[in-house]
């Protein structure tokens, strides 16, 4: 009985604390600060990447075909997107040590110009609440997530572009 009461009380406490938090979460989630390394071995903080414009975070892996389809499709459009909106794309690789050495091979082989971050043990993936890849987030200039999409089908890049234009318009 005593245990049940304690359990109940703690649940009530939890719920009440969550409910206080609720309206703030609705205002938009910020990018969590996680220490990662770039593909070139430099340490970076995911919350302080220093980009001026909007940022697209795309979680991918060398073994994930839809992820590569998405990033290759965006690659063909990237120059235009950058010129129009000042966007930067950050490709977060969740490849673990089995496949991590293939990341620079693929990225350069495909001539991607994205900033590539390595998340071999899923720290950033966990912090961003990502279940599976591909998962793409659009972040405005304040570092707030304004749009996200889990999955990739051809045409998703058009939707992302629409959302990107909205963000860019807001800033200008």
């Amino acid at each position: 009985m005593k245990k049940t009461v304690v359990l109940f009380l703690s649940l009530v406490l939890t719920i009440s604390s969550f409910s206080q938090e609720e309206h703030k979460v609705d205002e938009g989630k910020k990018i969590p600060a996680v220490q990662l390394k770039t593909m070139d071995g430099k340490s970076v903080n995911t919350a302080e990447l220093g980009f001026k414009g909007p940022v697209i975070f795309s979680f991918w892996a060398t073994w994930c075909s839809p992820c590569k389809r998405e990033l290759n499709t965006i690659h063909d459009l990237y120059i235009d997107w950058q010129a129009e909106t000042g966007v930067n794309l950050v490709a977060v690789s969740i490849d673990d040590m089995k496949t991590a050495s293939g990341v620079p091979v693929y990225v350069d082989g495909k001539s991607w110009e994205y900033l590539v971050l390595m998340d071999p043990n899923g720290d950033f993936k966990r912090a961003m609440g990502v279940n599976n890849v591909p998962h793409t987030f659009l972040v405005d200039t304040d570092g707030t997530i304004v749009y996200s999409h889990n999955n990739y089908a051809p045409g998703d890049e058009d939707k992302l572009y629409e959302e990107l234009l909205k963000v860019a318009k807001k800033t200008n």
Partner: peptide
């Protein structure tokens, strides 16, 4: 590993 634009090997 070695890579440059359009080519990569490991």
């Amino acid at each position: 590993g070695y890579s440059k634009t359009g080519f990569g090997i490991s």
